[in-house]
Computed example of a mutant assay.
Amino acid sequence: MSSPSKDLKETESALRSVIQSLIDGQEGFKKIGEQIKDEALKEYFLAESLTRAQFRGVLESILHQEGVHDIKESGTAVGTVRRAWNDFKSALGAGDSSLLSTAEEGEDEAVEAYARATETYLPLPVRQVLTTQAAHIDKSHEFIKAARDTKK
């Protein structure tokens, strides 16, 4: 069995990776929510941005409880590029379908971030939190994919 400090480092690394993905999602959903024309989807994306912020807060609280106090995360470089590309497409008049495709790509990344995190050692309560959040992310991914398919 590994030492507690190694386990804590693995848990911290896994959570930081997910937090970065949540930051990307939070910012991406907000931007798309502001740009998408369909009012129901606009409401969904803005609400989902808040959900990602809540998920992030829960994970940061877990890190704080474990004694990790320096949690100054930013999103990933891939997320930043995706948002810039989305802004560029919007400036050129991209429609809701294009925005939904961008959102789906972001959700692919979020699903992968959670999958990678749960492949590492995690204390049971942390694993349960991630599993619950991952289930929500999966449902969101399915919703966005279905919305994109109907906009084609």
Rank of each mutant, 00 (worst) to 15 (best):
S74T: 14
T131V: 08
S3A: 14
S3N: 08
K89Y: 00
Y44N: 04
R83I: 05
D24W: 07
F45C: 01
L100Y: 02
L92F: 14
E10D: 11
P123V: 05
V111A: 03
Q26K: 13
W85R: 09
G28A: 11
F143T: 12
D7I: 10
A113C: 00
L41T: 01
L22R: 09
R56A: 07
K30S: 11
E60H: 07
A135T: 11
G106V: 02
K152S: 14
R127F: 12
Y114P: 00
G93L: 10
M1E: 10
E142S: 10
S101V: 01
T76F: 06
A110S: 12
R56V: 02
S74W: 00
S98M: 11
L22W: 04
F45P: 00
K6W: 11
S90C: 03
T132I: 03
T120A: 13
A135Q: 13
E73T: 10
Q35P: 00
T120W: 06
D24M: 08
R82L: 14
Q54F: 05
E10F: 12
Q54Y: 10
Q128L: 12
K6Q: 14
A91L: 13
A147S: 12
Q20M: 14
S21A: 15
L15Y: 07
S140N: 13
A94E: 00
I71L: 15
D149T: 11
E39T: 09
T11P: 03
K9F: 12
R83D: 07
A146K: 15
Q20G: 04
A115K: 14
S90E: 03
A40S: 13
R116T: 12
A14M: 05
V68M: 07
R116I: 02
L122W: 06
S49F: 03
L46Y: 03
A94W: 01
A113E: 00
W85G: 08
T118H: 01
P123T: 09
E73M: 15
A146T: 10
D108T: 07
L22S: 01
N86K: 05
T11V: 09
E107D: 08
H64Y: 14
D38L: 07
V68K: 09
A135P: 01
T131W: 06
P125T: 06
T131G: 09
D70H: 13
E27M: 07
R148A: 09
Q133T: 07
K30M: 12
H136A: 14
G57V: 06
L41S: 02
R82M: 09
A113L: 06
E43M: 05
T76D: 05
S21W: 05
G67T: 08
K139M: 10
